[in-house]
Design a protein around this nucleic acid. Structure first.
Lengths: 169, 169
DNA sequence: CTCCCCATGTAACTGGTTACATGATTCA
DNA sequence: TGAATCATGTAACCAGTTACATGGGGAG
């Protein structure tokens, strides 16, 4: 079962909101989906060309890319494909698992660093949440993805505290 | 900054516990690190050959691979390299973010499926936890990685409940 | 005039997976 | 004898990143 690219989905999704250039697609993804998704130019432009050839997006000369009706159908189709779970690869846990070799100081540094990173990420999320209106139906979807980040961040902090206790750090 | 392979680290880590064949390295990783790490044969054998050439592992004819002193030094060195954060790619959130296009039924199914998956994963973790002895210093590291999985699983369940409420599903 | 941002793209590389081929050993 | 498991490996493929090249347009 070959792993299928999700870039198509991300790009069509972005264009479903409004027409934009490839450059802006990337900027929007970075700004809006940044805490759970990334795309690089090396992926975006070839995919955009593929989508154009397939008739899912189009571009009038000098205009930004826009999604076509068939592109919107394609988007809905992709949205309904079940998210294939990516084989997990957690570099932090891989190191901590070999904590005996790493030593207490290394473990402690690993936890400290992670805590810093998570707190920084939560700090980035807070102002975004503050700007979102929970009553606006259009913004609710962004709110729930944001909330997922917060839940996982807090879970990581809980786990770090617990782990420090367990390892006596 | 080229993304560096962590396969070396995983393999040296496995061999730091006891000598074993490439086949068993894979089996052990699957059984023990399975909930946060994966390795495929297509990665393991070439990496093992590379490690052998570099003198980090060795193999007497007919014997399993074993880690050398310089391999153990290498392992500690790799353990101390800070875990480079993988660009996040959460296929579930990507779909949910475009929930307006996906529709309520699609969102609901997405959440249901995720809940099922997470519960299944937690159910796999429970018996492992039951077998671990929190007093054994050697098993504490496994315990904390296991606990990380539990924390994140529970966080996901919390988030799902919250999200159902928010989206009225 | 220069710097920065917008914009489009490509080439080289790499980490990783899947599928296939092959054979030894064990066990019912 | 035949199936399952242990074992080693390779070839094809793929998604994705990084780095580079190129140029227009606006701001200072």
């Amino acid at each position: 079962m070959p792993r299928t690219s999700q870039t198509e989905l991300a790009i069509l999704g972005a264009l479903s909101i409004e027409p934009m250039s490839g450059y802006r697609v990337r900027a929007e993804i970075l700004a809006t989906l940044g805490h759970f998704w990334t795309e690089s130019f090396g992926q975006i432009y070839p995919t955009l060309a593929k989508l154009e050839e397939a008739g899912f997006v189009e571009r009038e000369a000098g205009e930004p890319f826009s999604i076509t009706p068939s592109g919107r159908r394609r988007l809905r189709e992709l949205l309904r494909t079940p998210p294939e779970p990516i084989p997990p690869r957690n570099a932090l846990l891989l190191r901590l698992f070999f904590g005996k070799e790493l030593g207490p100081a290394g473990c402690r540094e690993l936890l400290d660093r992670t805590e810093r990173d998570v707190r920084a990420q939560l700090a980035e999320l807070a102002p975004i949440r503050a700007r979102l209106d929970p009553e606006d139906p259009d913004e609710r979807y962004q709110l729930v993805t944001l909330s997922a980040g917060e839940h996982h961040g807090r879970a990581t902090l809980d786990w770090i505290a617990e782990t420090r206790g367990l390892l006596g750090l």
